[in-house]
Amino acid sequence: MNNDQTDTATTHIAVIDNGICNLRSVTKALEAVGAATHVIRTPAELPAAATGLVLPGVGALRDCVASLQASGLAGTVREWIAADRPFLGVCLGMQALFEYSEEGDTRGLGILPGKVVRFELPPEYKIPHMGWNTVRFTQPGSPLAAGLKSEGESFYFVHSYHCVPDDPSVVLATADYGGAFTAAIARGNCHATQFHPEKSQARGLQLYRNFVKISR
């Protein structure tokens, strides 16, 4: 549920509703780890109490970016990240940060240099990449990965495209599906995951708990 009460003891997280996201699962996961969530559809709905911003998404990136542009929230995301305020992108919310995607020849928000490409795999690998896979965290001491094993934790994926950052230093985690790919990124307080923490049971809740702590 949305909690619009101002409570200094509670971390308030704004969750963007772009019309193509698993909104209920994300907000319920955040609430389960103690956050108050505020679903926003326009910049005017962003509460002053919010100290963290989450952009989830499933489906087609073109629709996700078009929705953000139409609502004005594309600018909100850019400004929030430029100010180094705590941000978490999930699935399409990660892909949208980059400059370009092969999916529908789509221009992203251009916050991070790089592109999003379709998996090119041998016939024995199914596309989309769907199900549990081992994620290995590559940035020692990352606050988003606190309490998670750097050598490998299982998270749930559903995607046909993956991000290729120009700057390898932003790669927070990798996974393997016919070859290594970027599973999560981090630059300052901007974080994003290709996998779905809200579908990843206890490990996913730990990651959301970490984001809430970052947002305090």
Rank of each mutant, 00 (worst) to 15 (best):
S154W: 11
V171Y: 00
V65H: 02
P143K: 05
F119P: 14
E99H: 15
C190Q: 08
A192L: 12
G34V: 03
G141A: 06
S67W: 04
A96F: 04
R203Y: 09
K126F: 01
I111N: 14
E45Y: 10
S200I: 10
R136E: 03
S142M: 01
A35R: 01
L92T: 10
E45W: 06
P165M: 01
K213M: 04
D4V: 03
R107S: 15
L109P: 09
H191W: 14
A96C: 11
G114C: 04
D176S: 07
N3K: 11
I16D: 11
N22F: 09
A186N: 06
R216H: 13
G52S: 12
A9W: 05
M130W: 00
T76H: 06
G34F: 03
G72N: 11
N3W: 07
F137H: 08
V158K: 11
I127R: 05
P113I: 10
G188V: 13
F181I: 05
H159S: 07
L46P: 14
K199N: 08
G75P: 12
G57Q: 13
S160W: 05
Y177D: 00
T182N: 09
L73M: 15
I13S: 03
E45F: 05
F155M: 14
L88W: 00
K149I: 01
L207G: 05
P43H: 15
K28Q: 13
T27S: 12
M130Q: 05
K126Y: 02
N133E: 02
Y125F: 11
P143V: 01
P56N: 11
Y161I: 05
L61G: 06
T174G: 04
W80A: 11
E124F: 02
R62Y: 11
M130F: 04
P165C: 01
L144M: 10
P113R: 13
Y161V: 12
P168A: 10
Y156D: 08
H12V: 13
H196W: 06
H129N: 05
P140M: 00
D166C: 01
Q69I: 08
Y156Q: 08
A186T: 06
T8M: 12
F155D: 08
L55S: 12
H191L: 15
G52D: 06
A180W: 01
M130A: 01
T11R: 09
K149L: 03
L73T: 08
G152Y: 12
